[in-house]
Amino acid sequence: MTNPLNDIVHLDQVTRAYGDLKALDTVSLEVPAGQWLSVVGPSGSGKTTLMNIVGCLDRPTAGRYWLNGTDVTDLNQKALTQVRRNQVGLIFQKFHLIGHLTALENVMVAQYYHSMADAAEALAALERVGLGARAGHLPSQLSGGEQQRVCIARALINRPPLVLADEPTGNLDAANEQIVLEIFDALHAEGTTLIVVTHDAAVAARGDRQVVLGHGRVVDQKVHPRSPAVELAGVAA
């Protein structure tokens, strides 16, 4: 086991049980800063549960979790919320945009809760994902691909060190999937840590490294040839 303070994500023997069901079962996982990690596995294998714990939306029932050098295992709701606000960007399969707010306002909401709403900065973020012209549209007036890009702009607006995406391309066509992956490439190049849950082998292959979950455990993992430098670290189940 490496020093937990060196990784951005460091799970040590983490279990998340729902009654008798262990959605995560003594998972240890270490993600160094800047890595693009793909998480794959069959439905019900615990991918979303893992993301919720890594994203501080949920707490382990056993084990310990260090995020960016801080032990967040025992933090209360309020403290977890604060960690989430400052450390994590969330991208959802279903986008979860606020229906009565425009694309621009949806991005500004994240600024607002983080620190300070800034329309110019939010607009720049939308332009970066190719949506500058659609900033004034409501989610219902946007295509699925466009909504996902708004969701990504929102996740990135506060420049979190860790970006979590749960099936980000699950609802997108090939063209939009490509756009999203290009954005991820750019993010990765900038040094943002990315954890992407996916069912799509092609999407998974874009990462530096891939872990496979099965029945709440890490059952396999591999380092992708594109980035041979990344060390194979911390797999125990």
Partner: peptide
């Protein structure tokens, strides 16, 4: 990559009040 850096103070307050009003 550095986390988003923002100036605090009055500007901050005004911008967020505007946003709160906008959301309501």
């Amino acid at each position: 990559m550095a986390a988003r850096n923002v100036t605090s103070g009055d500007n901050h307050q005004v911008a967020n009040h505007t946003m709160a009003r906008r959301m309501v």
